[in-house]
Every structure is written in structure tokens, then in C-alpha cells.
Design a protein around this nucleic acid. Sequence first.
DNA 1: CCCGGAACATAACCTAGTTAAAAGTAATCC
DNA 2: GGATTACTTTTAACTAGGTTATGTTCCGGG
Lengths: 239, 239
Amino acid sequence: MIEAYLRKLRARDSVSAGEEEAIRSLFSEERDVPSDKTVIRAGERLNISLLLVEGLLCRYKDLRDGSRQISELHVPGDFADLHGFTLKRLDHSVMTLTRCRIAVAPHDRIQAVTTEHPHLARLFWLTTNIDAAIHREWVLSLGRRSAISRMAHLFCELRERLAVVGLADESGFALALTQTDLAECMGLTAVHVNRTLRELRERGLVEFRSRRVTILDLAGLRRIAEFDPGYLNLEPEPR
Amino acid sequence: MIEAYLRKLRARDSVSAGEEEAIRSLFSEERDVPSDKTVIRAGERLNISLLLVEGLLCRYKDLRDGSRQISELHVPGDFADLHGFTLKRLDHSVMTLTRCRIAVAPHDRIQAVTTEHPHLARLFWLTTNIDAAIHREWVLSLGRRSAISRMAHLFCELRERLAVVGLADESGFALALTQTDLAECMGLTAVHVNRTLRELRERGLVEFRSRRVTILDLAGLRRIAEFDPGYLNLEPEPR
DNA sequence: CCCGGAACATAACCTAGTTAAAAGTAATCC
DNA sequence: GGATTACTTTTAACTAGGTTATGTTCCGGG
């Protein structure tokens, strides 16, 4: 069930039938993983990469004092660590935030597919570059946006990325995160996340309750977030 | 003069004589650019990528209120926008922070070289993945580190990256940045950068004066930064 | 040698977000 | 159906870093 991944790739560039076949051949197995399990530990040597099929994953780093920063959230159809194919050791860990279904791509298969299909190699490269663009947007959020604008921006980003794989629409999306998880994404405390969510609700922009984000005013939300979806690269370019 | 770039690549993986020749053939010209000029504007269509030969460049984004966030600093030997080869439009701008010498690599040449040398293609991919790792470290800094630890971490990172190309040693390095530039890197105000620099100086860790970073206590600096150079991928891995 | 402009420095005050503690809600399990 | 556990909400005191303002130092140009 890697349909979400194909959908995501095709939102960026065309994928031929032969290439689709090659992509399907990347995966050796699928695994189910319970919530809150670290599936990749920073620094360990890798010979596989993981595609998220169902659930939510995150990349994170911890500091000595126990505080944690999430650097990216992954939605179905995302490769959580395709960059591990070239890096071989990650600078961050990857954990499940919900129960997850994960497809495993051994590096030797990625090696074979990218050698035989240079166009796919470029497309894979592109997707890791989009991850970097997401990181840059988070750098901007953490460095310069206020808590409310930061939170609004995250909801806009997730809505857009989930919509590509059919998991969100104008009205909202399911999001099985705790307020603590959100705090670890946004460089805030859970307490302040709670206050910020209240303010977003009271301003009639968005509601986050019982694992669902309900968008009340998408235009208003984008306005206070200064959200420009360009960085997600969702309009295919001639390449 | 792309020797710095070759040095940087060879710090990560071996580069054959033929590959070196191919890399040299990437560049069509060199340009001198004065300080404080935006050389690439977010959103414009690209058909070249820029390698920094001399000087300092940064990637940045602005918000409507005029505040600016730098997402990465570039030192000699860095490609400022190799990711533009796959993205074709950048989500950020790139500007000079000092007078710079820049080498121009047209995308059609990158296309030709990566097609003929799949190993170089993987190496280029790797370098953009290291940029992403640097972004993640900044996300951690901005989200969770205190101002002093954040600043210490930046100095550690720059020292390491400049050392690879022979521009820094244990004792320090030249850094022609203003305190305002530093503030735009660190998500702080220039005033607080000034306070933080004073504290680093008073604690006997680093001194930043007249465009030079003098390291007084590297071990102490790394300690308060919780600096682990692993993310810069400076120990070649079998690939 | 003085002027103008940029960068650096420092002080006084302000605020967004933190910390800590306690209580409320809601699923889940035996 | 009551206990357990996880998550959310609220409050109040506190602090890191922001804001504003004023001075100083440095440097190149006329």
C-alpha cells in the first residue's frame, strides 16, 4: 500500500508505468509499529529506509536536560529517512507518534533503482530537498513567528501535505497528536500550546479537539501564519 | 578556484581524477559580487546554481513586518543553491554578507555530469542532505537552546565547517558578520546578541571582535553548546 | 581634521512565554 | 462500575529575551 507515496511523487513530476513498477520493487516488507516507539536511533548505521504508509512519525533530537525538539512531522506517503540512503548515519532519531504501518526499502534496492532510473534518482533527490525546504520554514517559524502564527503555520502545512494524499480537505483533518507533541514541534511548552490553541479557537480560526483539526477560517488562518505553500513544491515544474 | 569545493567533497568521499575533471567542467564563469546584494530571489526560476569561492553568503526569508530569518550561512566551498537544480524555484533568497567571489554552474552542465557520473550524483545529493542536517540543528537551537548555548553552537559549527577548507583552526577564524547578521541567524535581537557575546567573553569561552572569532576555551564552548559534530558528516563512510 | 554613517555597547523597562501546581475530563482496563 | 492512566485546562509567579533610547567607537571620504 504505497499508493500515497505515488500520489505524492505525481504531485511533483510524472512517473511512468515502468518507474512505478521500479518503485514498487523498492520495498521488501511492511511492519506495524505501536505508538511512541523510536524506530531509528540517531547515529546508528543504516541499510534500510522507511516509508510511512499509515500513522504519524516524527524526526526529533533531545538535549541533555531532557527537552526535545521535533524537526519534522511525517504523514502517510512520506519517506522518513530517504536521506539515510546517502548519509548512512542520521543526526536525529525517528519515532512513531501513533500506531504506524511502515514499508521497508533496503538501500541496495534503492541503489539498483536509482542507477537504472536516473529520472527517479532526481525525483528522490527532489523529495529530500523538499524536506529541507520544510526545515527552513520551521527555522523561520521558530526564529521569528509568534506562537499563534507558528501554530497556524503548522496547521496550514499539515493540511496541505495531508491533502496531497487525500487525508485532508478545506474543512480539516484527523491529527492524533497530543499538545505535548505540538509543543515539541513548536519550541514551546505544552501550557503555552494550550493557551495558543484557545486563542486560535476564540478568534474563530481553527479548532483542535479529540484528535481532529477543524478549520473554521482557512483564509484567516493563512493570513496570520503568512502561509505561502510554494515551499512544498506542489505545482509540477518542467524539469 | 574551486579547490575549496573539492576539499569539502573529499572530506566526505573519494573523488577520482576523472570526477574532478567533470566537476571543474561544471562552471561556466566566476563573478565578483559586492556585499549585501541579493543574488537569488525566492520564487524566481533558476537555470544555474552558485558555488561560493570566497566571502560569506546566506539563505534567508523575510516576514511582512520586516523581520528576517537566516536559515544557513555559507562558507567558501559551499554550493549555495545546488538544491535549485531539482527544485527549480527556491523558497528562500540568497544574499552576500561580504564581498564574494562566486562560480556559476549552469543546470544543463550539472545534468550532463550527474548523468555521466552516477557516483557524483550521489555525492551531490549527499551534500544537500548535509545542508538539511544543518537546518535540523538550527531548528533544535532555535526551539530549545538558550541564547548563549545557541551562539556557542553557531561558533562551533562555523569553526568546523571553515576548518575543512583551511579557514579556521583551534584558535579561531575570521568572520566578517555584524551583530545584526548574527541576530538574524539566531532568532534574537541585535541587542541580545550583544549581551550574549559579552557573557561568552566574560565566561572566557569566545571573543568576537573586529571581524574575528577568537576561541578561548573550545572544550568549554562545546560543552555549553552540547556540540556534536556528527551532523556535519565529516568522517567518510563506506558508501 | 572633521564629518557622516555604520556598528557596537549599555541601561531601564516591558512582555511573551516558562514553570509549577492543581484540578478537570475522558478513554481504557479489569 | 470503579480504578487507572493519559491528556487537557487553568492559574499565578517568574524570567529570558525584547524594546526603546542614548551614547560611544570606528572608519572612510572630503
